[in-house]
């Protein structure tokens, strides 16, 4: 395979990797604050995509308005998930919480199936689909949008966590909930915020993604799983790790599909995961328990 084609695969890998990374960021944001693994994270991605499609093509809102309204609705759904499912189960075991979020995931999926049928739908690209040619390598503008989005979200989360009082409160909630409560932080409200932020990140990932590939009600499962793998790969609980893990997964996938028979793509990706976890059980950056970093 020529160098140009290898670079092409790298571009494809980075693009998909940025999407996985965004989904992983959603997992990590909730986990860091509350210790909950939210398996409905993929559904936020799907809802972000399908709501935008609906608002754009059926309700005829302008593109930016459709996207904004979709994100707001997904954030409300995220808060609702916390309020109605996670909050009442705060005292339950982790296993029960995981089961509950899986239930939420099925619930949202099937509502989406009823509301929009199962037909895949796509969004128009944000800024046309004329590829930018760098020598023999073509880069679609949408790829750049996705990569930019991942970078912006990562930086924003970093600043939020490390430079604001609000972020400090979230970190305090994660590190020592009891002490945080004693100094007057409303831990419940902090965790609610983490669900809101995760839902927003997921919705953005979804609507950026739908401009590249058609999505339907079941797409959330695929991306939820890949995002989870990315989060584990990068070092469970770390934001930068999530993005790194996403990029690593995307690049490994693209190269294995491009260089080997394509059927091995998932096998190779999961083999890499097993190897990394075997030799480095804490992920690329080393896992952090809720609150470290």
């Amino acid at each position: 395979m020529s160098a140009a084609n290898l670079l092409q695969l790298l571009v494809a890998g980075i693009t998909m990797g940025a999407v996985y990374g965004l989904v992983a960021l959603g997992f990590v944001t909730i986990y860091r604050c509350s210790g909950v693994v939210n398996f409905a994270q993929g559904e936020f991605v799907m809802l972000g995509a399908l709501l935008t499609v609906y608002l754009l093509k059926v309700a005829y809102l302008p593109y930016p308005a459709a996207a904004a309204v979709a994100v707001v609705i997904v954030v409300l759904v995220g808060v609702l998930v916390y309020q109605m499912v996670v909050a009442p189960l705060r005292q339950a075991s982790v296993l029960s919480l995981i089961m509950a979020t899986l239930g939420v995931s099925l619930f949202i999926q099937n509502d989406a199936l009823v509301a929009w049928s199962a037909r895949p739908a796509a969004l128009p690209p944000f800024s046309g689909d004329i590829p930018i040619r760098l020598g023999e390598v073509s880069v679609v503008p949408q790829s750049l949008w996705v990569i930019l989005m991942a970078a912006v979200v990562l930086v924003a989360l970093y600043l939020l966590n490390n430079r604001t009082l609000f972020g400090k409160k979230m970190t305090a909630t994660a590190t020592q909930p009891l002490a945080a409560g004693l100094v007057g932080i409303s831990t419940g409200s902090m965790i609610r915020w983490s669900f809101a932020i995760s839902a927003a990140v997921g919705a953005f990932a979804g609507l950026f993604l739908a401009a590249m590939v058609p999505m339907n009600f079941a797409s959330g499962t695929t991306f939820g799983l890949k995002g989870f793998v990315a989060a584990v790969l990068g070092g469970w609980g770390k934001s930068t790790g999530a993005v790194l893990g996403g990029l690593a997964l995307g690049i490994v996938e693209a190269f294995s599909a491009g260089l080997l028979p394509t059927g091995y793509k998932d096998a190779i990706a999961f083999l890499v995961l097993i190897l990394i976890l075997y030799y480095r059980p804490t992920g690329i950056l080393g896992a952090s328990l809720a609150g470290a970093e």
Partner: peptide
């Protein structure tokens, strides 16, 4: 497959 870049390459 979601992304077909490897196949198209």
């Amino acid at each position: 497959a979601v992304d077909l870049t490897p196949e198209v390459t």
